[in-house]
Design a protein around this nucleic acid. Structure first.
Lengths: 235, 235
DNA sequence: TCAAATTTAATGTATAGACAAAAAATCGAA
DNA sequence: TTCGATTTTTTGTCTATACATTAAATTTGA
């Protein structure tokens, strides 16, 4: 293990273990150079990594301090549905329900997404061992992703297809709980009013909007997990 | 803006903007030194930051390449309920319902959390303008957080109190959709079966378990937002 | 011809030193 | 005393250089 990495994980451990509490001061770089018998650049590299991970704050002339935890952000593992299902030895499939190319409606969301072009509208079902796990309603900008108009989406879920064809994205995900109603409840094969986890996601490439998707998952069959801690700060 | 930061954000922009696609090769450090008229250490620092952000991969002898996006993790903003509510100009309050110190039950979760000691069990309501937003059921290890036994939790929600008193944490959050039932529906003042967002969180300090909490929020009044993109990678 | 040994191109780590920048601490004067 | 200027401490950035490490590319040998 490289020295800078050892210094970094040394302090990471002491901070996460509680030995160093928020507000505590760390030794100055000169002292750490002596303690570890290395150059200042090496110490600095280790401490810079801890700053990037949000574990410490550094102020010129004042020193280095353990940061007060700001737990308003965590790393959310967005599950790859297909992979997760197959991991449990079950069978995953995506069944397209409707697909059409149409102009945007009056909704501002749709107008912004279309950006003057058309929208590709895809509805589909996520199936586990043939039973519905979730339903998805997706809009894709035909201007931003022209290839999708002729693409074969029967095998691959559109989310996976997009990930493989659109170079890079920003995304915003909104998670809430709703009751399945009407057509959605019907497709899912449950009674109207059944609680579902609702995931809405908007995706951009730079300033250009790529897709909007609203997914409804059966509450008792699907959940999301987020972590905060060493595992999360590592990347 | 420091030079290494400029180089970093230069390439961040080109990658996120799609100009550099996944798999594309970046110039080698020597070329970048010339391009930016700086030393290798400066170029290296910039590229190392991009590696840490997951935007590029580097292989010795082979070079530097734009990483293929692995969108299985996003930054989840865990809302500070009180702050968020007050931001909208509404009134926030936490009302404790039950509080007792008791030995763990037979449930493995409770036994592990107690770690041989007792559990502090707190139930309470999150109120917005006097109306229930969510109900919370919390267990705290009395061994890990002895101060909580005598603490005054009438004003402050226990989650906030813990954040201020327990030095640092790892946490795991599980999000799902459930129907409010029985006592929970009653406290929330809704019909049994109403969809709620269920947030379960387990918190550690090192190997020691601190708390377990299960929160039920009314689905139509509460949601969570996660981001992926430059804003997220920036910290 | 194919596999093993060698070369080489690229990144990874580290050093020692220099100057810049910020802010706490100290000192001086009104 | 108190405000303002000066000093000092600590981090921030950068350079030039050295050697280590890895894996792709090439050469060598049976």
């Amino acid at each position: 293990m490289p020295l800078h990495e050892r210094i970094r994980s040394d302090f990471e451990g002491r901070i996460l273990g509680g030995e160093l509490a928020p507000g505590d001061r760390l030794p100055i770089e000169q002292e750490l150079m002596q303690e570890y018998g290395c150059s200042r650049m090496t110490v600095n590299k280790a401490l810079s990594a801890l700053v990037a991970a949000g574990l410490i704050d550094r102020r010129k002339r004042a020193g280095t301090f353990v940061a007060r935890p700001k737990v308003h952000s965590m790393v959310l593992d967005v599950p790859d549905i297909a992979a997760q299902v197959r991991e449990r030895g079950q069978d995953y499939a995506f069944r397209p329900l409707k697909r059409r190319v149409r102009p945007p409606g009056e909704d501002e969301e749709e107008v912004l997404l279309a950006g003057g072009g058309a929208l590709v509208h895809i509805d589909g079902l996520h199936l586990v061992d043939g039973a519905p796990l979730g339903v998805e309603f997706r809009l894709v900008s035909a201007l931003a992703v022209p290839e999708i108009v002729g693409a074969d989406l029967d095998a691959v879920p559109p989310g996976t297809w997009l990930l493989q064809h659109v170079p890079w994205t920003e995304a915003e995900t909104r998670i809430s709980a709703v009751a399945a109603l009407g057509e959605e409840a019907e497709w899912l094969g449950v009674a109207a009013g059944t609680p579902c986890l609702c995931v809405e996601r908007r995706t951009w490439r730079g300033a250009e909007r790529i897709t909007y998707v609203r997914q409804l998952f059966l509450g008792d069959a699907y959940d999301m997990v987020a972590r905060f801690g060493p595992g999360a700060s590592g990347r």
